[in-house]
Amino acid sequence: MILEPGILALILLSLITSGTILYALRHIVPILYAWDLKSGSEGQLQLERRTYLLSTLLTWAFVAELTSLLLLVYTAENLHERFTGAMCAAGVFNLNAFGYPALLLKLGNFLLAGCWLVLNRADNSARDYPLIRGKYLFLLVLTVPLLAEGVVLGLYLLNLQPDVITSCCGSLFGSRAVGLGSELAVWPMRPLGLVLLLAYVLNLGSGSFVLRKGRGSYLFALSGLLVLFLGISAILSFVAPYFYELPSHHCPFCLLKADYGYVGYLLCGGLLVGATAAAAVGVLQPFATRPSLRQIIPALQRRAVWLGLTLFTLCFLVATLRIITTDFTLFG
Rank of each mutant, 00 (worst) to 15 (best):
F220H: 09
P247T: 01
S208F: 09
F220N: 01
L246R: 14
S206F: 05
G216Q: 01
M189A: 12
Y218M: 11
S248Y: 11
L184M: 13
L225G: 09
P247I: 02
F238V: 02
S206G: 11
S237L: 07
A240R: 05
A185P: 11
V201C: 09
A199H: 03
P191N: 04
G216T: 02
V227Y: 01
G231A: 10
L202N: 01
A199W: 10
R215S: 11
G216R: 08
P241D: 06
F220C: 02
G207K: 01
I232H: 11
V186T: 15
M189V: 01
L194M: 14
A221C: 07
S208K: 07
V227T: 04
G231T: 08
L194R: 09
P241A: 04
G231N: 07
S206D: 08
F229Q: 07
G216M: 00
E245I: 03
A234F: 07
S248H: 13
R212V: 14
L236R: 07
P241I: 11
P241C: 12
L225V: 04
L211Q: 08
E245T: 12
N203W: 03
L198K: 05
R190T: 13
G193W: 00
G193C: 07
L222I: 08
R215G: 09
N203Q: 14
P191Y: 02
L225W: 02
R190W: 13
F238P: 03
Y218I: 06
V201E: 00
L184S: 03
A221Y: 00
V195L: 15
L204R: 05
Y242I: 10
V239E: 11
G205F: 01
W187M: 15
I235V: 15
F209L: 11
L194P: 01
L246C: 04
V239A: 10
Y218K: 07
L230C: 10
E245K: 14
G193L: 08
L192E: 13
L194I: 15
L222M: 07
V227G: 11
S237P: 08
F243E: 11
A234Q: 02
N203H: 15
L226R: 00
L192V: 13
P241H: 09
F220G: 00
Y218H: 14
S233A: 15
E245S: 14
P247W: 06
S208L: 15
I235H: 08
G216P: 05
M189E: 13
G205E: 02
K213C: 11
S233I: 05
Y244T: 08
L192S: 10
Y242M: 13
C251R: 09
I235Y: 07
K213E: 13
L219G: 10
G216L: 02
F243S: 02
A199P: 08
R190Q: 14
P241G: 03
V210T: 01
L219P: 02
L211E: 08
H249C: 04
L184H: 05
P188V: 00
F238G: 03
R215K: 13
Y242V: 14
P241T: 09
I232R: 04
R190F: 11
G224Y: 04
Y218F: 12
N203V: 01
L184I: 09
G207N: 06
S233Y: 04
V201I: 15
L194V: 13
P188I: 01
A234H: 05
L197N: 05
V227L: 05
S206V: 04
L228K: 10
Y200H: 05
L225Y: 12
V239H: 12
P247K: 13
G224M: 05
G231M: 10
I235R: 07
F209Q: 06
